[in-house]
């Protein structure tokens, strides 16, 4: 079970969290201006990398807040967690 560092609460076991999919996929400000292909891409296409993946988690059984996390999908190692709006560490 992973230990995940909530940016507000600190390290907590994985079962306090809920996974939230890939991070940094912003909802278009004007969805109506998106053509069908662009909208489908926003809805359904994800990078699904082998390696480092920026993803969202929510500390659902803790502070309830969403945050971002960089996890290696091969080793499951989490290299960083950070608050929404912050840029991912390089």
């Amino acid at each position: 079970m992973l230990l995940i560092a909530c940016p507000w609460c600190g390290k907590r076991p994985e079962n306090e969290f809920r996974y939230g999919g890939e991070a940094h996929i912003a909802r278009p400000l004007d969805p109506a201006s998106q053509d069908d292909a662009a909208w489908a891409e926003f809805l359904y296409l994800r990078s699904n990398p082998k390696g480092m993946h920026a993803e969202r988690w929510r500390h659902i059984h803790g502070c309830g807040r969403f945050f971002n996390c960089v996890r290696d999908t091969v080793s499951d190692r989490i290299s960083a967690t950070y608050r929404p709006g912050e840029t991912p560490p390089r």
Binding site: R56, G64, P84
Partner: peptide, 13 residues
């Protein structure tokens, strides 16, 4: 509630 919190926190902060 999860869905609502998601939009509240991450899309419409």
């Amino acid at each position: 509630l999860h869905h609502m919190e998601d939009y509240r926190q991450t899309e419409f902060p």
